[in-house]
Amino acid sequence: MSLSLVVFYLLGAVCLGGAVGVVVSRNVVHSALLLLVSLMGVAGLYLLLLAEFLALVQVLIYGGAITIIVLFVIMLTRVQEFRAMKDNPQWPLAVVAALAMFVLLAAAMIKGAPSETTRQSVSFEELGSSLFTQWAVPFEVASLVLLVALIGAIVIAREGGEE
């Protein structure tokens, strides 16, 4: 077994373990922190896929921004209410649906798997020039999306409402 495969299994265990923790944990703060663990595992996978920039973005956006926002909201709402909250009574159905989803996806992927085994790295220069030439218009639209989300979030969360 090659070293990269060992690293892959380790990172995969971190990702999936964290993810299972997120969906089964009773405590919402534990869930949020386990999500961070899982997402950092995903950042490791990006490194394994030679996507250094994406790994960096993953750590910055998810580790630095999203987890903080989630923890902020958990602390602004009442924590004890979260703790008492039970799962949906139909959770066995959810297990069945998730398992069916996994079997379907995995079967389709294994059936149609291309046999590529060499990884290629995209250099920072290549990524940047692609982003600002070929993908310039979607890039600008993404900035608009962020602006609209920002304004929308302020309007929705503002104290008072209509005046």
């Binding site: 990702c15 999936l16 959810a94 649906a97 998730a98 989803m101 996994f102 996806l105």
Partner: peptide, 9 residues
């Protein structure tokens, strides 16, 4: 696929 299914659950 596994990560996605956990999310679905």
């Amino acid at each position: 696929a596994a990560l996605f299914s956990i999310g679905v659950y």
